[in-house]
Simulated scan of single mutants.
Amino acid sequence: MNADLKNTFSTIQKKIQDIPLNELLLSPDEESLLRSQKMDQLIQQETAYMVESLGQRIRDEYYSWGPLCCLMEDESISEILVNGPDNIWFEQAGTLHQHQDTFLSDISFRNFLERISQAAKCFVTVEHPSADSSFGDFRLSLIGAELTQSHPHLSLRRHPKNPWTFEKLKENSWCRESDIELFKKLIHERKNFLVIGATGSGKTSVLNSLLNLMNPNERVVVIEDTAEIALPNSASMKLLTREDPQGILPGIDQTQLVKRSLRLRPDRLVMGEVRGAEAKDFLMALATGHAGSFGTLHAQDAAQALIRLEMLIQMGAPQWSLTAIRRLIQLSLDCILIAGREPSGQRIFKGAYRLCSLEDHGFLVEPLDLTEGRTLPPY
C-alpha cells in the first residue's frame, strides 16, 4: 500500500512543479502556501478515484499530520517517536512498536515539521536546536538536525484526558487494595514524600492519582515544566516554567516558582519533577510548614534517590556541608514511593520506604509495613 501511495504522491508532486508560480500564490487572507486553490483542485482530481482511506491518507500528507494521524487518534497509544520520515515508533501498553506507515517524501516530512511547529509554537534554530511545548493532548519535544546529525527528532507524549485514579491503576494490575489504603494514609496524615522511578515508569500517573485523594477544600499549588498534572479542584492552581528559545523573554525556572508559590497560600505543594537546584527550596518549604507535599524524582531505588537528592540540593546550596544537606532531607521528607516497569512493559508499584534515621554513614531506610506479604529489599 505504501508503494502505491508514494507513486501517487510523486505524480502529484511532479504536476505541482509544472504549475506556474503565479497560479500558486494565495490571496492575503489565506494562511499557508500549501493550500492554494490550484493545488487543492489537483490533489482532489488525483485522489478522486482512489479508495477513500487512501485518498484521505494523501490529503493528510499535505494538510495534516501524515502517517501520525491514526496514532494521534488512538488513545491507547501513550507516546509517538519520529526519528525521520521513514522511522516512526509508538508505545502501546508499555511496549514500543514500529509504525508500518511512513512519510511519503523528505519534503512532506519537512512540511509536516513546519506545520506542527507552527501549531505548537515550538521552533528550533541553529542557536537553539531543541524545544518543548504542549500540543493538544501531547507534550511535544523537538530536536533539530544540528544535534541528531541526521533528521530532526520529534516525540509526542500523550496526556491522558481522564486523569488516572488508583482504582484504574489497580484494574491495570499496578497496585493492590492494601497499597491504596497506604496511599490514603499518607495523604490523610500529611506525609511528605517523593514518587521515584525510571523514565516511563508512570510517575506522573501516580501523582494524578494521589491528587484525586485530596479533600475538595484543599488548595494545592502545582509546579511543573509542562502541563501534565490535573488540578484536583477549583481552589488549586498551577505554575509553569518559561523558557524562550529566542532569548527575548527572561526564563522562569522552578526555583523561582517555588519561592512564588509560598505567597499563594498553598495547603500542599506538588512538584511535577525535582530535577535541579529547586530541590533545596522545595525541601526547605516542606520542612517549614507545608506538610503533605510531594513530587517526583528520577531514580531507580530509594538509596539512589537519596544520593541524587543530595546532589541536587548541593546545586542550589554549594556552600552547605553534606551534614547540613542530609539534615534538611531528614527534616522534610518522610518516605519514598517507587514506581517501576517490568521488561514486558507492565508498570507496577514496587513499594514504599520510610526514612527512619540519619546515621554517620547516611540514612537508614526501611520498608513500610504492607499487608499480603510483599517482600521489599532493605537499604
Score class of each variant (00 low, 15 high):
Arg275Cys: 09
Phe138Glu: 11
Thr204Val: 11
Gly200Ala: 08
Pro232Gly: 05
Leu257Arg: 02
Leu370Tyr: 05
Asp334Ser: 01
Leu71Pro: 09
Ala352Cys: 14
Gln319His: 07
Asp29Ile: 04
Lys350Phe: 00
Leu257Val: 04
Arg327Met: 12
Asn212Tyr: 08
Leu68Tyr: 04
Leu264Gln: 13
Thr296Trp: 01
Ala131Met: 06
Thr47Ile: 08
Lys238Asp: 08
Leu25Asp: 09
Glu359Pro: 00
Gln37Trp: 08
Arg35Ile: 10
His188Pro: 00
Ile196Ala: 12
Lys38Cys: 08
Tyr353Trp: 13
Arg265Leu: 03
Glu273Tyr: 05
Ile313Phe: 08
Ala324Glu: 15
Arg347Asp: 10
Leu211Ile: 03
Phe123Gly: 09
Gln246Ser: 14
Ser205Glu: 15
Pro67Ile: 07
Glu181Lys: 15
Gly295Val: 03
Gln17Trp: 11
Glu52His: 13
Leu182Trp: 01
Ser141Thr: 10
Leu207Tyr: 10
Leu26Asp: 07
Glu46Phe: 12
Trp320Glu: 14
Trp164Val: 01
Leu283Asn: 07
Leu249Gly: 00
Ser76Cys: 10
Ser173Phe: 07
Gly202Phe: 06
Leu186Trp: 13
Gln100Asp: 14
Ser344Leu: 07
Cys335Trp: 00
Gly292Tyr: 04
Gln13Pro: 00
Phe183Gly: 09
Arg57Asn: 11
Lys6Val: 07
Cys356Asp: 15
Ile196Leu: 08
Lys259Phe: 12
Pro216Ser: 08
Leu33Glu: 14
Phe138Ala: 09
Gly276Tyr: 03
Pro250His: 01
Ile107Phe: 10
Glu46Trp: 08
Pro20Cys: 08
Leu26Ile: 14
Leu33Ile: 12
Asp86Gln: 15
Gly272Gln: 05
Arg268Ser: 07
Cys70Thr: 15
